[in-house]
Design a protein around this nucleic acid. Structure first.
Lengths: 211, 211
DNA sequence: AGAAAATTACCTGGATTCAGGTAGTGAATT
DNA sequence: AATTCACTACCTGAATCCAGGTAATTTTCT
């Protein structure tokens, strides 16, 4: 049996969802909260496989609540309920460990599909949200030149440079001479035709070699 | 009637797809090419609503061919056919103007669904590809601390630093003393608690203040 | 086995960054 | 009128980066 916690301050929405799921076998709305505080209390007492979370709550930002829930609970699947598709919200929600994103005017069938998908460990986004995410890729300019071929060591050092480490710090981490790290850095910059570390990282990022 | 150009050097695949679509009303495979060269020739002579493109061709990288096709043709919808789901390939394909991404072992139903979706101007990704894209969002850590408040000048300099300019280069561009730029850089690093330029840019990027 | 590529390490010297200050000017706020 | 903030500019000294090399050892490929 899949147990659901419903977090929303609009009775209309909670009633609607309860009705949608009433006839569905294997799924039961076993608790409902009108505020973030209430929800966190409920989560201390019991566990739920699915959490349906309205992102606009009276007492706390829904995104923050999502992070809070994730802090103490890695297993529950969190599905956001919102009224609008906004790229920034969607990406932030995903970053905070959300599993699904639905508009409140969804169909019954979509809700059930979403619950099933996230149960399987997948991410479910409603059509609009999915498209917003994909659109982001369109506006990135294509790297004009070929990405240079890097050796294993070079990739490794590029990675560490990108994490903000300095040459000497890297040399300690990899048990290498600082001079060796510098040689690799120099070769990287030559391959990318960069003349500063920032430029190197910027170019490598454009080629999707890091981050 | 939807006209399809099929670009693939494996007879098995082209035959399979032709068979899949033979019984489908409103869709016809009206040309097939085994190489990129052939494909480009065909595209000079006629236009196609849909282009099914194998990304591993003998004479040209499929991604490059995708860009080539888009250069002279904004209206055709390009659907990639591949054997593997690789994040880098998927994102690059989308950036180069691709519209759909399918694995070669797809079902007939999925192929038709994909063709319909891209015809409507949407992007169709096979399940695996969609998941790869979404996974990317997971690995971005959420900014833990508050973004510091920056002054106008600081934002400006942060921006230029991010573009890969060095302190002295910025000073020339803004008609400032190099020492002044350095002061701003120093203040920025203090505000972000960074101890290197890369770290500063990394943190600022996490806070979505740049890029 | 031999060639090519990768990895390691060093040298020199100039440029830039980093960290710790101080200080004057102008604009906005209280 | 006094204070705060942003912007400007400077000083010192150490650390790091950048650019141009050379060179020995190991790994990888043919």
């Amino acid at each position: 049996m899949v147990h659901i916690l419903l977090i929303d301050d609009h009775p209309l929405v909670t009633d609607g969802i309860k009705t949608m799921l009433a006839t569905q076998e294997g799924i039961v709305v076993s608790a409902a909260a009108k505020t973030a505080k209430e929800a966190l209390n409920l989560l201390e007492q019991s566990t739920f496989e699915i959490i349906l979370l309205d992102l606009s709550l009276p007492d706390m930002d829904g995104l923050v609540l999502c992070s809070e829930i994730r802090k103490n609970n890695q297993s529950s699947k969190i599905i956001a309920l919102t009224s609008t598709n906004e790229t920034g919200i969607i990406t932030q929600f995903l970053q905070r460990g959300g599993n699904g994103y639905l508009l409140k005017n969804m169909e019954r069938q979509e809700l059930i599909e979403a619950i099933e998908q996230v149960q399987l460990g997948k991410i479910y986004l409603c059509k609009g949200a999915n498209e917003k995410i994909l659109e982001q890729y369109r506006n990135v300019e294509v790297a004009t030149q070929q990405a240079p071929v890097l050796t294993r060591r070079e990739k490794e050092i590029l990675q560490l440079l990108n994490e903000g480490l300095t040459g000497p710090q890297i040399s300690k981490q990899l048990f290498l001479s600082p001079l060796t790290v510098e040689t690799h850095r120099k070769n990287l910059m030559q391959k990318f035709e960069a003349n500063s570390l920032q430029m190197l990282l910027k170019l490598a990022r454009q080629q999707r070699l890091i981050e």
